[in-house]
């Protein structure tokens, strides 16, 4: 039988699976591993949700004591919990599999693919963004992603990354500054035909 928690789980799953996969992917690199990580996260969540009382016995079986999956589970703060567990899982996975260099998958969109122009454009921006992000430190990348992709507050980001709130603010500030500086160096690409023509 579906437990009463299943619908809750479903809605959480639907709301967070993509953000989490995206986040995990930013850490582990490839989407398949990211999916595996996120699956684990949700399985943990499912167990939390279905567990009658937070299980203490469970703690012995997992290694990291800082893993919130084994510490208390507060239903009102599912979102940070999810991100934290995802982050830990992804980092774990990344540590274990660092040597594996993922090959980029071919862009496989059999139908409903965007027009070539749209693809090109989004690829351009995406690429430049990704490339620029690579210039940042890991921490900066992390907080920027959590902030801009997932709209988390400083507080939440601090909880997830185990940094202080001030540190998060600082990382965001410096990270953004650096990104801005980098982007300023990039050629404008906002339909910038006229700009380019002017430059010629």
């Amino acid at each position: 039988m579906l437990t009463p928690d299943a619908p809750e789980l479903l809605s959480l799953l639907d709301r967070y699976e993509r953000p989490l996969v995206r986040y995990a992917q930013s850490i582990v690199g490839d989407s398949d591993s990211a999916r595996d990580v996120v699956q684990e996260v949700f399985i943990k969540l499912a167990r939390r949700l279905t567990a009658p009382v937070p299980e203490e016995a469970d703690g012995a079986s997992t290694d990291g004591s800082s893993d919130p999956a084994t510490s208390g589970f507060d239903r009102t703060r599912v979102e940070p919990w999810l991100f934290t567990v995802t982050r830990n899982g992804a980092l774990d996975h990344h540590r274990k599999h660092r040597r594996i260099i993922p090959m980029p998958l071919p862009d496989d969109r059999p139908c409903g693919a965007p027009s070539p122009a749209a693809t090109l454009e989004s690829r351009d921006t995406e690429r430049s963004l990704l490339r620029l992000l690579d210039a940042l430190t890991e921490n900066q990348r992390d907080v920027i992603r959590l902030k801009f992709q997932n709209d988390l507050s400083y507080r939440e980001i601090a909880d997830i990354t185990q940094l202080s709130v001030t540190n998060v603010g600082f990382l965001l500030h410096t990270g953004l500054k650096k990104l801005r500086a980098l982007i300023a160096e990039q050629p404008q690409d906002d339909f910038g035909l006229h700009l380019r023509n002017q430059a010629l």
């Binding site: 799953l13 699976e17 993509r18 953000p19 996969v21 995206r22 992917q25 989407s31 990211a34 999916r35 996120v38 699956q39 949700f42 989004s122 921006t125 995406e126 963004l129 920027i144 992603r145 801009f148 992709q149 953004l176 990104l179």
Partner: peptide
């Protein structure tokens, strides 16, 4: 930045 981040293509489970 927000726009571009959000536009990132994401896999689901």
């Amino acid at each position: 930045l927000r726009r571009e981040f959000q536009a990132e293509i994401t896999a689901s489970l």
